[in-house]
């Protein structure tokens, strides 16, 4: 019976085509430096999964955010582990994405025909920083509150549009419940959606052009 199910699916999906197009591809010789991109993708998936678990208990309001995090850490079974992974995953992801970018720069992999992959990559880097910035506020503790105060203040120094940007980020002149609400929304909906879409294009381009080889004397 399994065989029949397999055949039925194969007829409709075409496993052989998938295998030939996605997996059975030639690549130039790769090293460990080439694993940083997929490692970043892995971290994105981990952040997504642990993040979804966290939203089950987290409440984005100044009255309850701190206590709900405390409950996750103390009351929920393995809540400390989920939050620990999410917390450290964020740090690691920023580091990995940055090193990945440096690798691409030093091997000049951004050159023809991979210029668009680089542009998308910059978008991914900025979105990752955006995730870090918005996620940092959510625990609503002293550290996160004041970090967001200084972070948004910097946006406020832009000439002409600074005050407007500051108000958009904070949802008013001061950091408030509105700020928390919109950072939460950006953190779990807006930026992840952008990230996922960009990752899709990034991957498509990588499969289309293949990984670049390490430059030799003749390049």
């Amino acid at each position: 019976m399994w065989k029949n199910i397999y055949l039925w699916l194969d007829e409709r999906i075409g496993f052989n085509d998938l295998y030939a197009n996605l997996l059975d591809r030639p690549e130039p010789k790769t090293t460990w430096w080439n694993t940083l991109g997929s490692a970043s993708l892995f971290l994105f998936v981990m952040q997504g999964l642990t993040g979804i678990f966290l939203t089950v208990y987290y409440t984005p309001s100044p009255d309850h955010a701190y206590d709900s995090i405390n409950y996750i850490m103390e009351g929920v079974a393995f809540g400390w582990l989920i939050r620990g992974i999410h917390h450290w995953g964020a740090t690691l992801m920023v580091i990995l994405v940055f090193i990945h970018m440096l690798r691409v720069f030093y091997t000049a992999s951004f050159k023809y025909p991979r210029e668009l992959t680089w542009l998308i990559g910059i978008g991914l880097f900025l979105a990752t920083l955006g995730m870090g910035f918005t996620g940092y506020l959510l625990p609503w503790n002293q550290k996160s509150y004041w970090a967001t105060v200084v972070g948004t203040q910097i946006a406020g120094t832009v000439p002409f549009i600074g005050e407007f940007t500051l108000k958009v980020l904070r949802g008013g002149p001061e950091l408030s419940a509105l700020t928390l609400q919109r950072f939460f929304s950006a953190h779990i909906w807006i930026i992840p959606a952008v990230l996922a879409a960009l990752i899709g294009v990034h991957l498509f381009l990588i499969i289309k052009h293949g990984e670049s080889h390490f430059p030799t004397k003749e390049d």
Binding site: P26, E27, T30, T35, L36, F42, L81, G84, W88, L96
Partner: peptide, 25 residues
């Protein structure tokens, strides 16, 4: 002169991801 994406490249990627997972834990 290179390798196959599957299994050569993927294998390295998986080891790296596993290492990162252990590091996270």
């Amino acid at each position: 002169k290179g390798e196959r994406f599957w299994p050569d490249t993927i294998f390295k990627d998986l080891i790296m991801s596993l290492g990162i997972f252990v590091l996270l834990l």
